[in-house]
């Protein structure tokens, strides 16, 4: 309807020309690299070189070791905790800004306040927990000052506690933004209607707002879970080498130049992450929600 007739042939071609750059970048820097990982995971290696081959040894060694299973379980544990905390915090924060802040300027300002830290360096944000959590850190000084403990708590830094805390700190925005976005699209008349029909605030929340926020919750959950599953730097920095995660295991294999082993591990991680995403998409049909 909109295409002018003389330019029809060119305009039929236009979407292809416009989409080609994106397609090329993703093909060269995403698809081919992942295919490379799959291929290399069947290769052989020694301490200096990797050799083209077709062996299953990398997978056998990986899946045969109980360290692998423990590491995967530990990573899943992180993902579960971080998901629960970021969802609770993200939903509450988004709910407050979307439904309890009246002026749209204030909403925008508070939304920016929540998202700006996301635009600064993650590593620096991780480091900034060190003066808080260390043995002589602010947290321990405060707790001891209040007389709550006699000696510094050792578990604050370099523990599962500090890893999960930092994850939540880094990734809460990934929950807030999509949930806030879906909440802002809820027709306010629906909430009015629920109230007029005698629903309490809590009933409105459970029966109206949460169902209508599902797509945002889902998008946030996919982000948080995949980010935690693949992370290695947070776990390395914040656990002080005490804990393991799959990403860290892969990073260690890379630093030992065991590329085929790292590749096999990466393939397994990818399969697990894709299965988790597929499972989440089954719970909420995203295309129906959008």
């Amino acid at each position: 309807m909109s295409a002018a007739k003389p330019a029809l042939r060119l305009s039929a071609l236009a979407p292809y020309l416009q989409a080609t750059p994106l397609g090329l970048v993703l093909a060269v820097f995403l698809v081919i690299p992942i295919l490379t990982i799959v291929i290399v995971s069947f290769w052989d290696y020694d301490s200096v070189m990797i050799y083209p081959d077709f062996i299953f040894l990398n997978y056998e060694e990986l899946l045969g070791s109980h360290v692998t299973w423990k590491t995967y379980l530990n990573t899943l544990k992180y993902a579960a905790f971080v998901w629960a905390f970021t969802l609770g915090i993200g939903f509450t924060v988004a709910y407050f800004v979307a439904f309890h802040v009246r002026s749209s300027t204030a909403q925008m300002a508070l939304f920016l306040v929540c998202t700006i830290p996301f635009l600064t360096s993650n590593i620096i944000r991780m480091i900034s927990w060190i003066p808080f959590l260390g043995r002589n850190g602010i947290m321990n000084q405060t707790l001891m000052g209040l007389g709550l403990t006699d000696e510094p708590l050792e578990f604050l830094l370099f523990s599962d506690f500090s890893v999960i805390l930092t994850f939540v700190y880094l990734y809460a925005q990934f929950m807030i933004v999509p949930i806030f976005n879906s909440m802002m699209r809820i027709d306010r008349n629906l909430i009015e209607a629920a109230r007029d029909n005698g629903a309490s605030g809590f009933q409105t929340l459970v029966n109206v707002i949460i169902p209508l926020t599902k797509s945002g919750i889902l998008i946030g959950s996919i982000f948080v879970v995949t980010l935690v599953m693949g992370d290695f730097i947070t776990v390395r920095l914040m656990s002080g080498g005490q804990s393991a995660s799959v990403g860290l295991m892969i990073a260690n294999q890379i630093s030992l130049l065991q590329y085929p082993a790292a590749a096999a591990n990466a393939v397994v991680l990818l399969i697990i992450v894709l299965m988790m995403v597929a499972a989440m998409l089954r719970v909420v049909d995203i295309r129906k929600e959008l």
Binding site: G23, F29, L30, P33, T36, I37, F223, G230, D231, A266
Partner: peptide
């Protein structure tokens, strides 16, 4: 493909391109 690019863990992209 674009969505996959967001979901695939960063370390895979790094390792894949490096390899």
């Amino acid at each position: 493909m674009a969505i996959a690019s967001l979901i695939v863990p960063s370390i895979l992209v790094s390792l894949g391109i490096g390899l």
